[in-house]
């Protein structure tokens, strides 16, 4: 509800009311850049940068494949990459894509995130991103709860007024019931997402030391 105003805020700051008073228009490029912001600027500013990959000398890389014949004799589709960070013993694994080149990069990203988490704790990027997502999900859930509460109240009121208006009231009830089903589903979805975000990533499963990345990274 407040998003359009949020995105306008930097525009107002840039233009300044004094300029508007003098009849001087701000440079058009600045207006365009500010006006097309789609996300809230406040969150983006606070996020710590993506952590850098650890040096290759500290990583032990292994490609997981079965023993036995290779080359032309078999046709593997699995190109999982497992990394071990030697100083800390953290192990991460990626089988997100079919491409080994991509998996190597994703595994390094993941390892960098874990090391960042280990070093910076609650100030790390993974923790901050997780927090932001959790807050966003919570506020969404709150809004939807509020909306359907309001709808339910309205329905009750209408029900009181049109108690004798048989068929019409029935129809409306049906429609409202559908809406409620929708809410239930949304709630479930939210629960699932929350579970994921507390683990601090996009659909990552976390064990004590081994982490498997099965999803493609957000790019």
């Amino acid at each position: 509800m407040f998003r359009p105003f949020l995105s306008l805020r930097p525009l107002l700051r840039l233009a300044g009311f004094s300029a508007a008073h003098n009849g001087v228009l701000p440079p058009s490029s600045a207006v365009a850049a500010a006006a097309f912001t789609t996300s809230t600027a406040t969150n983006l500013k606070q996020l710590p940068p993506r952590p850098k990959h650890p040096p290759e000398s500290e990583i032990e890389e292994s490609f997981l494949k079965g023993s036995g014949p290779g080359g032309q004799k078999i046709n593997k589709t699995n190109s999982a990459v497992q990394l071990k960070h030697l100083p800390t013993g953290i192990v991460v694994k990626s089988q997100a894509t079919r491409s080994r080149t991509q998996n190597r990069k994703i595994a390094r990203d993941l390892l960098a995130l874990r090391l960042d988490e280990l070093a910076n704790g609650s100030q790390s990027r993974a923790a901050v991103v997780g927090d932001v997502k959790q807050k966003r999900a919570a506020s969404k859930a709150k809004k939807s709860r509020r909306k359907y509460k309001k709808l339910a109240e309205e329905k009750e009121k209408k029900g009181n007024v049109k108690e004798e208006g048989g068929r019409l009231a029935g129809e409306e009830e049906e429609w409202l019931e559908e809406e409620e089903d929708g809410e239930e589903e949304e709630g479930k979805d939210e629960g699932g997402r929350k579970e994921v975000t507390t683990l601090g990533g996009t659909g990552t499963k976390r064990a004590t030391i081994v982490e498997v990345e099965n999803t493609r990274n957000e790019r």
């Binding site: 490609f63 494949k65 290779g70 080359g71 032309q72 046709n75 593997k76 589709t77 190109s79 894509t97 079919r98 491409s99 080994r100 080149t101 991509q102």
Partner: peptide, 28 residues
């Protein structure tokens, strides 16, 4: 083979097209 089903196999940073009748590129 999955590569014939999907029509491609990643090879380095390329997505090589695969068709029945031509050998699928191997990771080695």
């Amino acid at each position: 083979p999955l590569q014939y089903v999907l029509g491609t196999q990643p090879f380095g940073n390329l997505e090589i097209q695969c068709r029945p009748g031509v050998l699928i590129p191997r990771p080695e």
